[in-house]
Every structure is written in C-alpha cells, then in structure tokens.
C-alpha cells in the first residue's frame, strides 16, 4: 500500500468501504480498470466470484496437479484432478469446466487457465468445486451456454496445429454433446460420416450442424435444400431419404 500515491490509496480505501472486499481484491479490480473507480466496481460486480476465492488456495491447488518440470497441468494432472472430483474424465461436466477455464487444448491446463477458470466458477478448493458440479452440469441445459460450449469444444478437441477436427474425435464429441440434447438423428449422422465422408470435420460444418439440429425438425419437414447448409449436411439429408430413414414430405 505504501507504494501507491495518495490518490490511488484513497481509491482503494473507498473501494473497500463500499464493496467490503479485501485490499487485495480492491487492488486487482482497480488495476484491471486502470484506476477508474466506476470501472473497478463494474469489474468487481461482474465477477463477484473473484472476491470469494482465495488465490493462495488456488495456487496450492494448481501446484498439486502441475507437472513437476513444466509449468502446466498435463494428462496425469488432469486425471488426478478428475479422481479428486470423483468424476469420469469422459463426463461432459469436464467439458463445461474446461470451457470455464477457456482451455486451449483437451487434457491440458495452463496456470492462467486453471486459476482463472476456478476463479470465474467461484471456487478455490476441490470440495467447493465438487459441490458446484450439479449446477455446472445444468449449464448445458441453457441454450445460449450450450451453443458456446459446443463451439468451444471444436477448438478444444482439435489436434494442435490442425485446422479441422479428426473424424474419430468429432464423432466422440457429438455423441457426448447430443446425448444431452436427444437429437434423434445422431446415430445416423455418425454412421453417414463414417460410410460416406471419412475425413476430418471443418469448423463451419461443426458449427452449422448445431444450427441444423436446432432449427430443422427430425422429420426434415422444414429442410430447404437451398438453405446454404454445408454440403455435408445436404448429403446427409440425401442419405437419410435414400435409405428411407426419413420420408421427405413434398
């Protein structure tokens, strides 16, 4: 505190009085908003969780999982993390957690991703995170969040340095994601891709499939072949009607 100028010190005091936050949090919020009080309040109230987490605990937690010689949590750390949470690594809730962490790659967390993610969830211990699991799981039910998680999953599951998503991985992710959505055509879609396509999936096809699932009913009655769907989806519709899985009503 003694390093700050008088004006800054006053702001910190003011901030603490009004919000009841600790000095550390006050400093964080003020720094983040370039020492504008108004901005600092916005920052604080838009991320109320920050005030609830203790960065000392978060640091300890991170160190528990990180690789001994690299500043990162890798496969082993993630698997330990899952064990501690009593969650299957394949559980979709891990995808939701990774989404909160803004993780760039599957089975890896950087320090910033891990700590920042837990801060935004608002927990600083495994126990607290475990208590949060049901509400995290419920986020998938939210349409808006589901779309974000779905689109996040593409880059997250993709191999480093690749533009598109390997088919095997894409199929796995779709099964996982659409299990929640109960899309009745999911098995046909996966089978179609294996039989007819057998190549990696582009980001456009990935994100457009969600739009397709959301807007086109499973009987395809409102499907429009001039609807600018990716060609793979057009071919899927053809496949469905050709094989009599769906009768297209004219």
């Amino acid at each position: 505190m003694h390093k700050l100028g008088r004006g800054s010190r006053d702001k910190v005091q003011q901030f603490m009085t009004i919000t009841g936050a600790s000095e550390k949090v006050a400093l964080q919020a003020l720094k983040a908003s370039d020492w504008h009080l108004e901005g600092a309040f916005d920052f604080f109230y838009s991320q109320p969780q920050i005030s609830l987490t203790n960065s000392r605990h978060l640091e300890d937690l991170y160190n528990r999982y990180k690789e001994p010689d690299v500043d990162m949590i890798m496969v082993e750390g993630v698997s330990q993390f899952c064990t501690d949470l009593q969650v299957d690594p394949q559980d979709i809730v891990m995808l939701v957690i990774s989404w909160h962490m803004k993780a760039a790659t599957m089975c890896e967390f950087t320090r910033q991703e891990f700590i920042g993610g837990l801060q935004s969830i608002g927990v600083d211990s495994i126990e607290k995170l475990r208590e949060k699991l049901p509400s995290l799981r419920a986020e998938i039910k939210d349409d808006h969040k589901f779309r974000e998680i779905y689109n996040f999953a593409f880059a997250w599951a993709r191999e480093k340095g690749q533009k598109s998503l390997a088919l095997e991985t894409a199929l796995g992710m779709w099964q996982l994601l659409f299990a929640e959505r109960h899309w009745p055509l999911i098995d046909h879609w996966c089978q179609f891709l294996q039989v007819r396509h057998n190549k990696a999936i582009s980001r456009d096809t990935w994100s457009q499939l969600l739009e397709f699932v959301k807007t086109i009913d499973p009987q395809l009655s409102n499907y429009d072949e001039e609807g600018a769907w990716p060609y793979l989806i057009d071919e899927f519709v053809e496949y469905l009607t050709e094989n009599g899985f769906v009768q297209l009503r004219k």
Binding site: K163, S164, S202, R203, D204, T205, Q208, E211, G227, A228, P230, Y231, D234
Partner: peptide
C-alpha cells in the same frame, strides 16, 4: 460452388454472418 465456398471459409477468405447463416 458450395464446396468451394466452404473451402474459402475454411481458409478464411469468407465467413458466415454471425446472425444470418445464409
């Protein structure tokens, strides 16, 4: 033509509009 459009999207010459996917 559609396939070429998709390939151009993939190579970031084009993008789909955020709100109107057509």
């Amino acid at each position: 033509i559609k396939k070429r459009v998709e390939s151009l999207i993939e190579r970031e010459f084009l993008e789909r509009d955020k709100t109107d996917r057509k």
